[in-house]
Every structure is written in structure tokens, then in C-alpha cells.
Write a protein that binds this DNA or RNA. Structure first.
Ligand SMILES: [Mn+2]
Ligand SMILES: [Mn+2]
Ligand SMILES: [Zn+2]
Ligand SMILES: [Zn+2]
Lengths: 123, 123
DNA sequence: ATAGTAAATAGTAATCATTCCTATTATTAT
DNA sequence: ATAATAATAGGAATGATTACTATTTACTAT
């Protein structure tokens, strides 16, 4: 895989963003630096970066987001502001339970907790 | 909301299917009974049934599925055959942890365990 | 440094799932 | 049975993503 300014910029933008951005948001950011970059280039490179294991794709309902954090982790989804917050849980117990009860070989666990975040606390 | 043959048929098909069917699969099934039903009718009714709380929408990666089981539950996703299997876990512990550590008010928890199901057991 | 090559891009067209639109049909209250 | 109007069929529109292709760019060997 050959170097390209576009891919490097996309990589940097995703890497310094904690908000699990969408392809379109990333596209808008890249355009500030490379005004004639095309949306197809953003999609193609996001897919390649995922294939290389540099980033993860996250399906937030029907919205596709990207995550620089490729370590297994979970998310809190706020229904008020839409934010997706990282959180880390241990899932070994669940993996062993499904192995015993369903003979299911678990590779990974994804957990999403839906609710309202601290920004909207009642006074 | 007025009765319609189409909605009733869609409701019955979803209710007797455990495989978390897609809109298109449901459409094909309904066409066996009402050959000139339209795909828009299927989508419109699935949305209405969800709004009435009769069914749930499930986002399986980028695939949208429907579930007659509206009680909170989790899923095992088999990467070999694509099956989505129901499983029920208690999540109270997680809800209290995020409340304490993040002041996050949890309403519901969705958990997906990815791996291979018993159908593909090594001999 | 120069030239050859193949990868990557920009711009645009195509695809796919879903939603929207509207003339017609079906259901329900009277 | 009739009137009112909710629901449908069929097709157009939308939005996100992918595919196509002529041109540009990065790397390699001279
Ligand atoms: Mn994350
Ligand atoms: Mn289910
Ligand atoms: Zn929030
Ligand atoms: Zn399987």
C-alpha cells in the first residue's frame, strides 16, 4: 500500500477524534485541508484502514461511525445528545456462559448501554 | 388505526418467525399470500408496528432486522452462518456501574456476542 | 535526475435500502 | 348503503455507499 496525502490526513483526523465520527463528518474535515478531495476517497480509505486494523467501524443504529480505538470496548449511547462514550467492561463471564449453555464459541462481545449522559442531569 | 389485511399478514409473519427477518424477506413471504402487496406497504407497517411496541427493530451491523420479541434480550451472532440467536442476560450490575462511574442513567442494555454457533462445532 | 509502472485519486454514474407521493381502494361509523 | 378517510399499489425520490475510469501521483530502476 502506497503512501497518499489523502489517506494520511484521514488517518490523522480519525486518530485525534474521540466522537466516533461519520464518513461525512470526516469528509468535511479533510476538505478544510485538501479542498478537492472526494467523498469516494474518504470511504475507500476508511475501508482500507479498517482492513489493516488501524480503525474500527461502529454501527450506531442506522448510523455508521468510525473509531480509532481498536481495542475491544463498549459504549454508552445518550439518547439526549447522541453522544457515544467509551467504556471498558470485562466479558469473560458471558463468553463462558454461552459456551456452556449454547456451545457457542465467542470471539468478541459488543455492549451498548442506552440512556442519558451526565450533561443532562436533573437539578 | 384501521384494520388492513396487509398489516395483519405482516404481523403474523413476523410473529411466527424466530430468525429476525429483514424487510425484504418479509416482503417475499407476504407476496405468497397477497401477490400485489408493495414493498412500501411492508416498510410502512413494520414502522407502525414498531411504534405501537408490537415488534422491535434490530440493527445487525448494516443489516436491519425485525424481532417479534420486544422484551429486553441479547443476541449471539454467528459469523459462519449469520444466525442471530436470542439469549437473556441480567444487566442491572452494568447499569449501576455506569451510574456510579459516569453519572449515566441507563434505560436499556444491548449486548451482542460474536462467534460461531454450535452448528459448526469441530469434530 | 528521468522515465516507466502501477497505485491512488477526482469526479461522476450506479446501486441499494428506505421513504415519499398520489390516485385508487378498502374499512368503518352512521 | 353512503360518506368520510385511512391504507394501499406503484412508482419516483432520497441518501448512503460503491463502482467506474481518465488522470495524477508515488515509487522503482536506470
Ligand atoms: Mn469507542
Ligand atoms: Mn431477538
Ligand atoms: Zn447526552
Ligand atoms: Zn452458525
Amino acid at each position: 500500500m502506497r503512501y497518499s496525502q489523502q489517506r494520511q490526513l484521514i488517518r490523522e483526523i480519525v486518530t485525534r477524534t474521540n466522537s466516533h465520527p461519520t464518513a461525512d463528518w470526516i469528509f468535511k474535515q479533510t476538505k478544510k485541508i485538501i479542498p478537492n478531495i472526494s467523498l469516494g476517497t474518504v470511504y475507500r480509505n476508511l475501508k482500507q484502514l479498517e482492513e489493516k486494523g488501524e480503525i474500527d467501524t461502529i454501527y450506531d443504529g442506522n448510523i455508521v461511525r468510525y473509531d480509532w480505538n481498536v481495542e475491544s470496548h463498549d459504549h454508552l449511547k445518550c439518547t439526549e445528545c447522541g453522544d457515544l462514550i467509551d467504556i471498558h467492561f470485562k466479558h469473560d463471564k458471558f463468553k463462558s456462559i454461552v459456551k456452556r449453555k449454547f456451545k457457542f464459541d465467542a470471539n468478541s462481545v459488543e455492549m451498548k448501554i442506552i440512556g442519558t449522559c451526565s450533561k443532562h442531569a436533573k437539578k
